[in-house]
């Protein structure tokens, strides 16, 4: 291995340091530190209101952090003079409510940013979109509008929309909580495929079984702080903190 490659691998894919965020007088993030390595899938758990979404949304600055440092592949995401739109293409995001554009069909949902942000030609963008839609198993739905798709299909289009930009990290905010139970599996299967292809992923989700099987690391957040983290076997098997234990027994129901 050359020194260059080693250095690149030593740099985490995503690095968050001392992240603080308040809404009005309520401090929602009280200093979050987090690194995500290349190809790693990190799962974030925690009770409602613990700041999971806020942390995730700070990572691409949909929410503006009050203080702290965020680095993507060593490049600053926070701070003045950052080209936000350039950095955002490198960070894919998948929302709980899908947020597909209802006036555009599946293919155009994917090509919009390719054309307008990447400046691709129509043919190039279409080809890329079809590739992404094929990956999520929806090549045959490319001309359908969101209203003609099931929730699970819509979420897979949303994943394709993010994937097509070839991001270095993908953020998932409860991607399956708006879905009927029988549709959850398709979305998780796609996420598994995305991970297998080498994507770095930061996932907020309550799918414990999926976390146990697929996650490389699990983080437990409470009241704006990371309480503990570790491999899924340890967090689920032998949590160190009372709060983690309480939370897990509540959600798994034993």
């Amino acid at each position: 291995m050359t020194a260059d490659v080693e250095a690149a691998q030593a740099t985490p894919s995503l690095e968050v340091r001392g992240l603080h965020k308040s809404f009005g007088t309520v401090e929602v993030l009280k200093g979050v530190d987090l690194t995500v390595a290349h190809r790693e899938m990190v799962f974030v758990l925690g009770p409602s209101g613990s700041g999971k979404s806020t942390m995730l949304r700070c990572c691409n600055r949909l929410e503006e952090p009050d203080s702290g440092l965020i680095l993507l592949e060593g490049d600053p995401v926070t701070g003045k003079g950052v080209n936000l739109n350039a950095i955002r293409q490198r960070i894919g995001m998948v929302f709980q409510a899908f947020n597909l554009y209802p006036h555009l069909n599946a293919r155009k949902n994917v090509t919009l940013a390719l054309r307008k942000v990447r400046g691709m030609s129509r043919d190039e963008a279409d080809a890329r979109a079809m590739e992404a839609l094929t990956r999520v198993g929806l090549a045959d739905k490319s001309e359908n509008h969101p209203s003609e798709l099931s929730g699970g299909q819509q979420q897979r289009v949303a994943i394709a929309r993010a994937l097509a930009l070839e991001p270095q990290v993908m953020l998932f905010d409860e991607p399956t909580s708006a879905l009927d139970p029988e549709l959850v599996g398709d979305v998780l299967a796609v996420m598994r495929e995305v991970k297998a292809a080498g994507m770095t992923m930061l996932v907020v989700s309550h799918e414990m079984k999926f976390a146990r099987e697929a996650a490389d690391r699990v983080i437990f957040m409470d009241q704006g702080r990371i309480v503990e983290q570790g491999p899924p076997e340890r967090i689920f098997g032998a949590p160190e903190h009372d709060r983690t234990r309480a939370f897990l027994s509540r959600v798994t129901g034993d």
Partner: peptide, 20 residues
């Protein structure tokens, strides 16, 4: 959510307004 989705893919505020 529409604006957030658009901005998360790197579209500018103006592009988001115009296309989304």
């Amino acid at each position: 959510g529409q604006t957030e989705a658009a901005r998360s893919t790197g579209l500018t505020a103006t592009q988001t307004l115009a296309h989304v």
